[in-house]
Amino acid sequence: MTLLLAGCDGPLSTLAPAGPAAGDIALLWWGMLIGSAAITLLVGVLLALSFGPPRVRPVRYWTHGWGLGFSLAVLTTVLVAGLWIGERILPRDDGAVEVRAHAYQWGWRFAQPNAEGETVQTDGVLYIPAGRPVDVIVTAEDVIHAFWVPQLAGKVDAIPGRRNLLRIEADRPGTHDGLCAEFCGLGHATMRFELVAYGVDAPPDALADAPAAEEYADD
């Protein structure tokens, strides 16, 4: 078991969550994995049993019982769980910290508040306070990119002309890897960034030294 979980580790692993959204989704995954394994096994057993002598079951046993009843029951359960978790991790109006991620070919420019509450700009590193919900406003300069920090939450696309919103939160101070998930041309593979979650009482020096954020062209 430990070995299995160790295999799931990694700086970009969705299975090594370090925030509430990623944690919820990882839980959902493990649940669905167990269910799927059971269903695969079940179909395998039903297939294996078919190789015996002919057995007559009413047509509806298969089409209505298994086909409609069983599948609808399973699917409804999964759907409701998914919607429940989906609602839980949405951004909401609760005064969360707002930061901005601006994607371009091929890199990331971030704007985030420093200790004094001024918005400062950084390149390639996003600083957020740990233990607090943060809403990332995601925008794009040129083509479509996607903002993704797998250990914290799902991804959202950066689309020219639009501002998308993603809620992330880091449980503890630490560093997490992020990347561009939507194919964006020649530099796609290397369009990485770093996310630093800092303790609220210990804001990093880099933030204090960073220049004030400039306005972006599409504002």
């Binding site: 991804k155 959202v156 998930a181």
Partner: peptide, 29 residues
């Protein structure tokens, strides 16, 4: 038989991907 084994598994991961929060993680991977 190859179809049953493969397609059932593909169908199940398809249901997983239809679930919005999981899709937010797995999309484009």
């Amino acid at each position: 038989m190859g179809f049953f084994l493969t397609f059932v598994m593909g169908g199940l991961t398809g249901v997983m991907l239809a679930i919005v929060p999981f899709n937010w993680q797995a999309h484009d991977t």
